[in-house]
Amino acid sequence: MNENRIHQTAIIHPGARLGMGVTIGAYSVVGEYVDIGDGTRIGSQVIITGHTRIGRENRIFPFCSLGDEPQDKKYGNEPTKLEIGDRNTIREFCTFNRGTAQGAGITRLGNDNFMMAYVHLAHDCRVGNYTTFTNNASLAGHVQVGDYAGLGGFTAVHQFVRVGAYSFTAMGTVLTQDLPPYVLAAGNTAKPHGLNLRELKRRGFSEETVIALKRAYKLVYRSGLALKEAESRIMPLAADVPEVRHFLDFIHVRGRGIIR
């Protein structure tokens, strides 16, 4: 169905661009610089403002605020952006802020993500594809989240922290340092609790790959080695297993350091 369905109480700025088959519910507001792709469904009382681009076939539930000003005292009304990809589910009361001039200028959410109620994406965050954020998971500014990562309810992530692909946090986890790919974390502050084996199995990782990742994990977390020495021991594994190479490349970037 290519016809747009817009409730008579919705307020759509004449400058907003809507694709085909867009649905907008009662009392929602869409601003001047907003671009909404084909087939996206927006519930009632949703506010979408700023330079915000939303892709195709997203589902946005009531009471969300997307693309408003970043919560950053340095923000000076620069025309920064929020970009949302395709086929995302964004549940009630989510707040996604646009970027800052001091950062990348863009807050970005990829494709096929499942964002449960009250999720917050602060300015300049970059979230990949196929992630799951459970209720009240919150990212501070400049956080990066890899594909297939899962954040448990009430997870809080400090600014500039990286969350690796296929990783997972338990409910109430507080991340103040980077979480490597494939790793489970829990606690305040977060501690490692092995590999995210259930997700690796679900995504079809081979037994050989999982065994190699277990060896890499043990060298970092169970051997008692300094991180630099553990990295050197992992290198031979990384030469043969791309997933181990990804793990090694991630922990090699010092940044805020990894959880240990």
Results as ranks from 00 to 15, higher is better:
L213Q: 08
V157K: 09
N135K: 03
F114A: 01
A230R: 03
R56D: 06
F168N: 14
A137W: 10
C64H: 13
I251G: 04
D35K: 09
C64N: 15
I60H: 07
V143D: 07
A238I: 13
A149F: 06
L139M: 09
G194C: 07
Q45R: 15
T23A: 02
G105V: 05
K214P: 02
T155F: 11
T173N: 11
I106A: 02
L225Q: 03
K81D: 00
G128H: 11
V161C: 09
D240E: 13
R254W: 05
R202V: 14
G103P: 00
E69T: 12
A238N: 07
F133W: 15
Q45M: 10
R59L: 10
H158T: 06
E57F: 15
V253F: 07
G55F: 02
N58R: 02
V22R: 02
M115G: 04
K214M: 11
T169M: 10
I6Q: 09
Q102L: 08
I48F: 03
Q177S: 06
T49K: 05
R5W: 03
I47F: 14
L237F: 10
T23L: 08
G172V: 04
G105Y: 07
D124S: 06
T173A: 13
I12Y: 03
I36G: 00
G172C: 11
R202F: 09
R233V: 03
V29R: 13
V163W: 11
E231P: 00
N4M: 04
F250Y: 08
E3D: 11
N129F: 07
F61W: 13
S44Q: 14
G43D: 10
A137G: 15
M20V: 00
T189W: 03
H51K: 11
E69I: 10
E243Q: 14
A239F: 01
D72P: 01
